[in-house]
Write a protein that binds this DNA or RNA. Structure first.
Length: 935
RNA sequence: GCCCAGGUGGUGGAAUGGUAGACACGCAGGACUUAAAAUCCUGUAGCUUCACGGCUGUGCGGGUUCGAGUCCCGCCCCGGGCACCA
C-alpha cells in the first residue's frame, strides 16, 4: 500500500495547540471585559484576595503564582456557582529596593516602578487570571496614597477610650481636659503626669501638643530605633535579622530619634480576642497570639530599706511570693543609680559598662550565660518582713512589665540559674510531688512554706495572693502584652509623605490638603544627620506661613494595611471607598498568601480595620475571614564539585539550564559558563573537576542537587514565561496545583510537568480525534458514563472547597482515563467535563466548550452539580480478613445483610483454609467495606 | 529552650480508625516506526517462591482496638515561628 503524508497533521487547526488557544481566549476575555466586576448585583458576593506583591526588578519566578493560581481557581469556581466574585490585583509599589536602585543608577523610583509593574502585569496576564484590572491599585499612586494619608490623619486625630473601648476624636479628649484635666479619663496613653482642668488651660500650645501626643493613636515620641547607616534609614524590628538589615545585610545600630508611632497596643485585647472569629490555621493564630503575648498578673510594690522609693515589680506568679529570695532590676532601670550603696558602686558601674558593650546580637546568642551584679540595697518582703537583696542583670528587660522582678529561684528557671551562680537562697514553695512530669514553671502543685497560702493549689493561691496584694494596697492586678507600638517613620524618599506640618515651636498640625504629593528629586541618598532625602527639598519643606513639613515618609505597611478596601471601589475620588461598596463587599472572604506576613502585615492590617470600624467607616470587625498560607515553591539548586588540595571538595552553584535531565554538566557547557563567571577563575579544569566520558564519547561531570529558596543568587530560578511558552498556561496552572497540597513547601521540578501535559492532550483527544471533532452522541448518557462523571464532580467540588487542588487534578485525570477506556462520545457528559475543568484550565475549557457548539463563554455557565443517584453501587467488594490480616475479597450485593455477608464469607475457600482447626471467636462485618474473622 | 507543622516507594504525593502507596514522574519490557520522537499497552515497595502464595513494611519504641499511616504515651529527625517576656 502506498503511504501518504498525513496532510491534516500539518495544517489542521484542531490539533491541541495551547499557546494559540490561550492567546485567543485571553484576547477575547479582554475584549468582552469578561472579568469586570460590578458593585451592584443580586448575586451573593465573594471576595478572594491575594497578598499584595512588591513589583521587584527580577519579575516573577514560578513560586510567585502558586497562590494566585489557587485563588484564581477558587474565584472561578465561586463565580460558576452563582457568586459575584471580586478577585483583584495590585502593587505594593513603595519601598526600599526601588530607592536603592535609584541611588545606584539614578533611575527615578517612579520610573523603575512603572517598568516593573508593566512586566509583572504581562507575566500575570500570560497565566490567564481572572483579575478585574479596572480595580488595580498601586500604593505609590497619589490617588491611592491620598487615602493612606487620610487614614493616618484620622489616627492622628483620635485616641483610644478604654471605657467606650474604641477610638474617639481628640476633640472629645480636649473637651474632657478642659473640664476635668486628665484625672478621670480612662484612655490608652503614655502620659506620665496628671493635671487638672486649670493646669491644662494654663499649658502653652507646645505643652498641650506634647500631652495630646501621649494619647493620639498616631503620635510622636523619642524612641530608640534601628538605624542603618548603609541604607540611610530606620528599620522596624522585623526588618532586622541577626543584628543586620534583612535587606542587604548591613550593620545596624540603636539610635534615639523623634519618630511617629502607631498605638497598636491599644487594640491588643481586641486583636487577641477576635482571632476566635476567624477561620485561620491554628499555627497562624498561635503566631499572632505569641506576638501579642498577653500575660495576666499583678504588680507589687516592695519597700526599699533606707529609701522612700518603692520597687515595683510585675509577676504572673504572685502565689510564689514567699519564695522570692532576691530582686532583679534591668540594668537600665532608673532606680539603679539611686539605690546602689557606695561599697557596690564600682562593681555596679563595671557591670553597666559591660552591658553597654553588648549588642542585642551578643545577648541573644549567649542567652544562657548568667551575669549580674549586687546593688548593695535590700527590699523588705511585704508579708514575711525578710530582707531581700536587690541585684541587676541583663536577663531582666526594661521595657517589659515594670523592668524589675521578684526572683523566685524555686519556680523559675532563669532565677534558679541566677541563684545558683551567685549563691542566693532557694526556698521551695510549691510541692509538686503529685506531678512528677511537671517542669519548674508549670502552674501545678500545693503551696508550702507560704504562710496564709499553705495547702492551697497553685491556681487557688494565685487568686488569693492577688486579692491579698490588692486589699493591702501592695499592688494591682495587671495585664501585660509583649506587643509594642509600631514605629511609623522612615528616613527615606520612596514612601508616603506625612501630611503634617510643624510651627516654630514644634507643634504638629494636620495638613488637610490631600494628597500631599512626593516632590520630585534627583538625588535619593539620605541627607546628613540621619535626615530623610526630603529634607533637602527646601521649597517643599518650608511653607509660607512659617511652618515646616515632616520630612520622613511612612513605612511599607502603611499602604498595605488597607489596600483590600480600596479594591472595593478603586476609582473613588471622594472617599477611600463608598459606603455602598463597603456594605456590599464587607470584608475579604478568602485570603491567600505566605506566612512571612504572619505578624507584620496581618497585625497592622487588622488594627487599621478595627480603627476604621470604630469610626463607623467599615461594617465588619475583621478584614480577612478565611486565611490560607501557601507554601513556598523552592528551587532545585545544582552544584559542581571542585577538588581542594586537602582532599575535600568545595561546591559552586551551576545555572540549572546548563544541566541535562540527569543533572550532568557537559564539558563544552562548562567552558561556556566560565567565560562570563568569575567564580570559576583559577580553577584547574582537568585536575580539580572529575570528568566522566559517556557512551558517545562526550565528557561530563555529575552535579549534585539541594533544595533551596528560589533566587537569582542560587542560580536556580525558573521563569513561568518559559514554562508557559513550552507547555501552555493551562498546563502550568494545573501542574503547580498537582505538585501537592497548597500549604506545603515543595521543590519545583520541571521534568514531571510532562504528566500534566500528557493529561491535557489526552483530555483534548476526548473531543478531537485524528484532527476531527468527535461525532458526539446526543443520546442519553449511559449509566457507566454518568457514574464516571459524577464521581469526578463530587470529588472536585469537595476538594475545591477544601482547597485541596492536587487531588482535584488527580480526580480529573481518573475521569479522563475512565471515559477514554469506555470510548465516551456523549455530548452531555463531555460538555459537563469540559466545564468541570474550567477553573483549573480555563483556556482549553473555553475552546472545547465552543467546539461543542456553545456560542457564549462558559464563564456564564453553571458549575456541574453531583447527582448522588448516579453514584449508587449495585454491589460492593468486601475485603475478607482473618485476625485483621487481608486474605481475600468477595463481592456482595448492596442490599446484602451483615448476616448474609458473614455466612457467605465463612463459606469461602480461603476462609475455610485459615479457619480449619480453629474456633471462630467473633466475626465483624463492616457494611460495604469488609469482613474480619477473629480466631 | 518554647510554640506550630511534618516524617509514607527511586521522586512528587493519595488514603471519614476498615486493611497502604490513588494520581503522576521515573524506570523496565512490549506495540507502532527504516529509525527516532510522539502515542498506546504491560509491569514497577522490599524479601521469598517456578508458580499459587507467604512474610515484612507509613521515622523509632511501647499502648488502645477485631483492625492503627490515622488515636494515646515516650523518644529521634527535618522545616517554620518566637526567643532571657517575669
Amino acid at each position: 500500500m502506498p503511504r501518504f503524508i498525513d496532510i491534516k497533521k500539518y495544517c489542521n487547526i484542531m490539533e491541541y495547540n495551547p499557546r494559540e488557544i490561550e492567546r485567543k481566549w485571553q484576547q477575547r476575555w479582554k475584549d468582552l471585559k469578561s472579568y469586570q466586576v460590578s458593585n451592584q448585583s443580586d448575586r451573593p458576593k465573594y471576595f478572594v484576595l491575594d497578598m499584595f506583591p512588591y513589583p521587584s526588578g527580577a519579575g516573577l519566578h514560578v513560586g510567585h503564582p502558586l497562590g494566585y493560581i489557587a485563588s484564581d481557581i477558587y474565584s472561578r469556581y465561586k463565580r460558576l456557582n452563582g457568586f459575584n466574585v471580586l478577585h483583584p490585583m495590585g502593587y505594593d509599589a513603595f519601598g526600599l529596593p526601588a530607592e536603592q536602585y535609584a541611588i545606584q543608577t539614578g533611575v527615578h523610583p517612579a520610573d523603575s516602578t512603572v517598568t516593573n509593574v508593566e512586566r509583572y502585569r504581562k507575566q500575570l496576564d500570560n497565566l490567564g487570571f481572572c483579575f478585574d484590572w479596572d480595580r488595580q491599585v498601586s500604593t505609590c499612586d497619589p490617588t491611592y496614597y491620598k487615602w493612606t494619608q487620610w487614614i493616618f490623619l484620622q489616627l492622628f486625630d483620635h485616641y483610644y477610650d478604654l471605657d467606650a473601648n474604641k477610638a474617639l476624636p481628640i476633640s472629645a479628649l480636649i473637651k474632657h481636659f478642659e473640664e476635668n484635666g486628665n484625672l478621670k479619663i480612662n484612655a490608652h496613653n503614655n502620659q506620665e503626669n496628671t493635671f487638672t482642668a486649670a493646669e491644662w488651660s494654663s499649658f502653652s500650645p507646645k505643652m498641650k501638643d506634647d500631652v495630646l501626643m501621649n494619647y493620639r493613636l498616631a503620635y510622636r515620641k523619642t524612641s530608640y530605633v534601628w538605624w542603618c547607616e548603609a541604607l540611610g534609614t530606620v528599620l522596624a524590628n522585623d526588618e532586622v535579622k541577626d543584628g543586620v538589615s534583612e535587606r542587604g545585610g548591613h550593620p545596624v545600630v540603636k539610635k534615639a530619634m523623634l519618630q511617629w508611632s502607631l498605638r497598636i497596643t491599644a487594640y491588643a485585647e481586641r486583636l487577641l480576642n477576635d482571632l476566635d472569629t476567624l477561620d485561620w490555621s491554628d499555627a497562624m493564630k498561635a503566631m499572632q497570639k505569641n506576638w501579642i503575648g498577653k500575660s495576666e498578673g499583678t504588680t507589687v510594690f516592695f519597700d526599699i530599706e533606707n529609701h522612700d522609693q518603692k520597687l515595683e515589680i510585675f509577676t504572673t506568679r504572685p502565689d510564689t511570693i514567699f519564695g522570692a529570695t532576691f530582686m532583679v532590676m534591668a540594668p537600665e532601670h532608673p532606680l539603679v543609680q539611686e539605690i546602689t550603696t557606695s561599697s557596690e558602686k564600682e562593681n555596679i558601674q563595671k557591670y553597666l559598662n559591660y552591658v553597654q558593650t553588648r549588642s542585642d546580637r551578643d545577648r541573644m546568642s549567649e542567652s544562657k550565660t548568667v551575669t549580674g551584679a549586687f546593688t548593695g540595697a535590700y527590699c523588705v518582703h511585704p508579708f514575711s518582713g525578710n530582707k531581700i537583696p536587690i541585684w541587676i542583670a541583663e536577663y531582666v528587660l526594661l521595657d517589659y512589665g515594670t523592668g524589675a522582678i521578684m526572683a523566685v529561684p524555686s519556680d523559675d528557671e532563669r532565677d534558679n540559674a541566677f541563684a545558683k551562680k551567685f549563691g542566693l537562697d532557694i526556698i521551695e514553695v510549691v510541692d509538686k510531688s503529685d506531678f512528677p512530669n511537671a517542669s519548674l514553671q508549670d502552674k501545678v502543685g500545693k503551696m508550702i512554706n507560704s504562710d496564709f497560702l499553705n495547702g492551697k493549689s497553685v491556681k487557688e493561691a494565685i487568686g488569693l495572693a492577688i486579692q491579698k496584694i490588692d486589699e493591702s494596697g501592695l499592688g494591682k492586678r495587671r495585664v501585660n502584652y509583649k506587643l509594642r507600638d509600631a514605629n511609623f517613620s522612615r528616613q527615606r524618599y520612596w514612601g508616603e509623605p506625612f501630611p503634617i506640618t510643624y510651627d516654630k515651636d514644634g507643634v504638629a498640625y494636620a495638613d488637610p490638603n490631600l494628597p500631599l504629593e512626593l516632590p520630585d528629586l534627583d538625588d535619593f541618598k539620605p541627607a546628613s544627620g540621619a535626615q530623610s532625602p526630603l529634607s533637602r527639598v527646601k521649597e517643599w519643606v518650608e511653607l509660607k506661613n512659617g511652618h515646616t513639613r515632616d520630612t520622613d515618609t511612612m513605612p511599607g505597611f502603611a499602604g498595605s494595611s488597607w489596600y483590600y478596601l480600596r479594591y472595593m471601589d478603586a476609582n473613588n475620588d471622594d472617599e477611600f471607598a463608598s459606603k455602598q461598596a463597603l456594605d456590599y463587599w464587607k470584608q475579604v472572604d478568602l485570603y491567600i498568601g505566605g506566612t512571612e506576613h504572619a505578624v507584620g502585615h496581618l497585625m497592622y492590617s487588622r488594627c487599621w480595620h478595627k480603627f476604621l470600624y470604630d469610626l463607623g467607616k467599615v461594617p465588619t470587625i475583621e478584614p480577612y475571614l478565611r486565611l490560607v498560607n501557601q507554601g513556598m515553591i523552592q528551587g532545585r539548586s545544582l552544584f559542581i564539585h571542585i577538588k581542594k588540595g586537602d582532599g575535600g571538595t568545595r561546591k559552586l552553584h551551576i545555572q540549572i539550564q546548563f544541566a541535562d535531565d540527569k543533572d550532568r554538566l557537559f564539558k563544552k557547557d562548562y567552558l561556556e559558563i566560565i567565560k562570563n563567571d568569575n567564580r570559576f577563575e583559577g580553577i584547574d579544569i582537568d585536575n580539580e573537576i572529575d570528568w566522566v566520558t559517556d557512551d558517545k564519547g562526550e565528557q561530563f561531570t555529575q552535579l549534585t542537587y539541594e533544595v533551596e529558596k528560589m533566587s537569582k543568587s542560587k542560580y536556580n530560578v525558573v521563569n513561568p514565561d518559559d514554562v508557559v511558552e513550552e507547555y501552555g498556561a493551562d498546563c502550568f496552572r494545573m501542574y503547580e496545583m498537582f505538585l501537592g497540597p497548597i500549604e506545603q513547601s515543595k521543590p519545583w521540578d520541571t521534568k514531571s510537568i510532562d504528566g500534566v501535559s500528557r493529561f491535557l492532550r489526552r483530555f483534548w483527544s476526548l473531543y478531537v480525534v485524528d484532527n476531527q471533532l468527535v461525532d458526539f452522541s446526543k443520546d442519553a448518557p449511559s449509566k457507566a458514563e454518568l457514574k464516571i462523571l459524577h464521581t469526578c464532580i463530587k470529588k472536585v467540588r469537595e476538594d475545591i472547597e477544601k482547597l485541596s487542588f492536587n487531588t482535584c487534578v488527580s480526580a480529573m485525570m481518573i475521569c479522563c482515563n475512565d471515559l477514554k477506556s469506555i470510548n465516551c462520545k456523549n455530548h452531555e457528559i463531555l460538555s459537563q467535563f469540559a466545564l468541570l475543568i474550567s477553573p483549573f484550565a480555563p483556556h482549553i475549557s473555553e475552546e472545547l466548550w465552543e467546539l461543542m457548539g456553545n456560542t457564549t463563554s462558559n464563564l456564564e455557565a453553571a458549575y456541574p452539580v453531583v447527582n448522588e443517584a448516579y453514584l449508587e453501587e449495585d454491589a460492593f467488594t468486601y475485603t475478607v480478613a482473618i485476625n485483621g490480616k487481608r486474605r481475600g475479597e468477595a463481592t456482595f450485593p448492596a442490599n446484602a445483610t451483615p448476616s448474609e455477608v458473614e455466612k457467605a464469607a465463612l463459606a469461602m475457600e480461603v476462609v475455610q483454609k485459615w479457619v480449619e482447626g480453629n474456633e471462630i471467636k467473633k466475626v465483624i462485618v463492616v457494611p460495604k467495606k469488609m469482613v474480619n474473622i477473629v480466631l
